[in-house]
């Protein structure tokens, strides 16, 4: 009886520790990272390419800039193909600020040795017809969805003349990529040219070897289980 009580007590302490850890960690991780605890990622619908049908969507939102709020502007696809996350105070202006995310033709050729993946997007903030840039203390975060052909993509920024690589994070399901951008402008994902988007590796052999390893492990476990029953 005492042993059972001890185990129950241990279990409650362990569960409380897990629950407190979860509550704290969810407040620290980026809002879009990983799926709840695991589970499959929901497959994204086909990527909408500029000039294709259906076309990719744009997005814009207007805010009072005297007290610019924490906000995000995202295009209307599910999941959004492009979004920009802003902190409170990112822009300051006497009236309103309109933040827009628009799919555009790439403003410059791809960086050497790179291939563009998906659309280029222009992210802008305007007030009274004048372009704004985020305050140095509050850079924006840009998130772009990959087309699904590769999970090794890098987010690049451009002000119209060439591209600059940003420090890119792969979010959750390996299809969305994020980078902090100190300036607005053009953004696009690129992958190394020549790097196979998929295949090119003897996957069949790897799968067969791993399958054989699992079968062997299962047989070893079954022998152990049988020996213990005797």
């Amino acid at each position: 009886m005492s042993g059972k009580t001890d185990t129950a007590g241990q279990a409650w302490i362990v569960m409380a520790a897990g629950a407190v850890g979860l509550v704290l960690l969810w407040r620290l991780v980026p809002p879009t990272s990983p799926p709840l605890y695991d589970g499959l990622c929901t497959p994204a619908p086909p990527y909408r390419h500029l000039g294709g049908s259906p076309p990719p969507l744009s997005a814009s939102a207007t805010y009072f800039a005297t007290a610019f709020p924490a906000a995000e502007v995202q295009t209307g696809e599910t999941p959004p193909q492009a979004q920009v996350l802003m902190m409170a105070g990112t822009f300051s202006a006497p009236s309103t600020v309109t933040v827009a995310v628009t799919p555009v033709a790439p403003p410059a050729p791809p960086p050497r040795g790179m291939l563009q993946d998906g659309n280029a997007y222009r992210v802008s903030a305007t007030t009274g017809g004048q372009e704004l840039q985020p305050s140095p203390q509050n850079p924006v975060t840009v998130e772009l969805l990959g087309s699904g052909s590769s999970s090794a993509l890098v987010l690049y920024a451009s002000s119209g003349d060439g591209w600059t690589a940003l420090r890119t994070f792969n979010l959750g399901c390996g299809i969305t990529f994020e980078a902090v951008a100190p300036k607005l402008g053009y953004f696009a994902l690129f992958r190394t040219a020549g790097a196979p988007s998929s295949g090119g590796f003897p996957i069949g052999i790897v799968v067969a070897i791993l399958g054989a390893l699992i079968v062997i492990a299962t047989l070893v476990l079954a022998r152990f289980a049988a020996a213990r029953r005797r």
Binding site: L25, W26, S33, P34, Y37, C173, G174
Partner: peptide, 10 residues
């Protein structure tokens, strides 16, 4: 599957 960001939560 989900990167190192998933580790502490999981």
């Amino acid at each position: 599957l989900y990167g190192w960001g998933a580790l502490p939560l999981d």
